[in-house]
Design a protein around this nucleic acid. Structure first.
Lengths: 222, 222
DNA sequence: GGCCGATTCAAACAGCCATTTCGCCCATAA
DNA sequence: TTATGGGCGAAATGGCTGTTTGAATCGGCC
């Protein structure tokens, strides 16, 4: 597996790639420097030589993983800004799901670990990186809901959509964790397109109805 | 904080409670035996005396936390089985959100850590414990969608609903992690009822539309 | 009191971790 | 050729971990 990695890449780059792979799989504390260096065919001291600490390697790994994922999966999903809002939402959902389900896309797995167990090292940098994406998502959802719907509802709907996307991280991890133990079974054969399609349909359906129900909120039992 | 804990409870019980608190906050590996024993006003050797290892304490802590949460927040939300399916779904969502947002409800936080970073220690036990809840949720969603909708759609919708609920774990953690750093701000003042209400409205709206769209799936841009 | 089993304790143990040290290798330049 | 300096590596360091040990302490019972 390191045959191609050892080819022509520099040790520093191999370290970052190995760090991405192991940090995304095990999280910051569980991924050891020894493992990373072994994966990168480098000495244990290499991490502290190129980066001054494990912390810095962590931040650098996320930075590169995020940048690479952003170019591999453009956040608008390839849908032009002139397209109808529904299609733009579909594109964004497809982009996020694509990044999450991409096996060589490590940034979301690292965020997943960070969400459950924050180290604080990525707090600032992730907020800055994700903020524009969040704003764009809010804009699309707001456009779909119309001006009559309060801003808080827009935020809640956007959270509902992102929550469905992020949940794929759990599925992805439980799948890879149980791989080999048994055949995947007939009840979990989801692929990225199918998931993105469902989330889009589900969310658009909900938004269409909430659009009419603006100001009317007795749809629940209380 | 240990004044009430030291009152009359046995050391074994204090250990389990301290373990719940710290395991749910830091996860299995980061919560150290020393911390737990200090929190429980017990000696370091107490864990290995009462439980034979940290692993067993972990399992026992989750077991008790789950059982207590289940009685504090009945999974049907107090809605009788004779009520309409929409109200039963609302009750189940309210129950899950209530358990997640309850500050002394540790079981979901522990699962959250397990999802991002599985130790394998809770794999079997959680699946057994959650399976009936999952089946009941599938039944309610299936009833709402009607018999014409394929089973895979039912599962996807149920996942969409649970994903929204589970996402509150992220909010809860980021809130508690940043508490004291700054005032919560005007944009994140969600409470459990409001969240549960939104998820219910959002999901019921989506289900109502998907019910009609059975067999028709060109609602997305491709 | 005197014994005894259950509990608690301080200390030590072995193992793993990130980090550092210091010397080796080796391409390059003089 | 020798000198240089960046990259590299084996081994050591100090700190933290879960676990064990063996003695001290406690409460109940003859």
């Amino acid at each position: 597996m390191d045959a191609e990695a050892t080819r022509d890449k520099t040790t520093e780059q191999r370290l970052v790639e190995a760090a991405c792979k192991l940090f995304s799989k095990k999280g910051f504390h569980e991924a050891t420097v020894s493992e990373i260096c072994e994966e990168a065919d480098a000495n244990v001291a290499a991490v502290n030589y190129y980066f001054r600490s494990k912390d810095n390697l962590y931040v650098e790994a996320w930075r590169q993983a995020f940048a690479r994922g952003l170019t591999a999966h453009p956040p608008d999903g390839g849908v032009p800004p002139t397209a109808p809002a529904a299609e733009r939402l579909a594109g964004r959902i497809r982009a996020v799901i694509g990044r999450i389900c991409d096996p060589v896309s490590y940034e979301f797995d690292m965020i997943h670990h960070e969400q459950a167990h924050p180290t604080g090292l990525l707090a600032e940098i992730t907020r800055e990186a994700i903020e524009p994406l969040r704003r764009e998502m809010l804009a699309v959802v707001g456009e779909l809901l119309g001006p009559a719907v309060p801003e808080k509802t827009v935020r809640l709907c956007a959270v509902s959509i992102m929550a469905q996307c992020f949940h794929m991280l759990v599925h992805k991890r439980s799948r890879s964790h149980a791989s080999g133990a048994r055949r995947p079974g007939p009840d979990l054969e989801f692929d990225a397109d199918e998931i993105a399609c469902h989330i889009t349909q589900f969310s658009l359906a909900a938004i269409r109805e909430l659009r009419c129900d603006a100001g009317d909120e007795d749809g629940h039992a209380t």
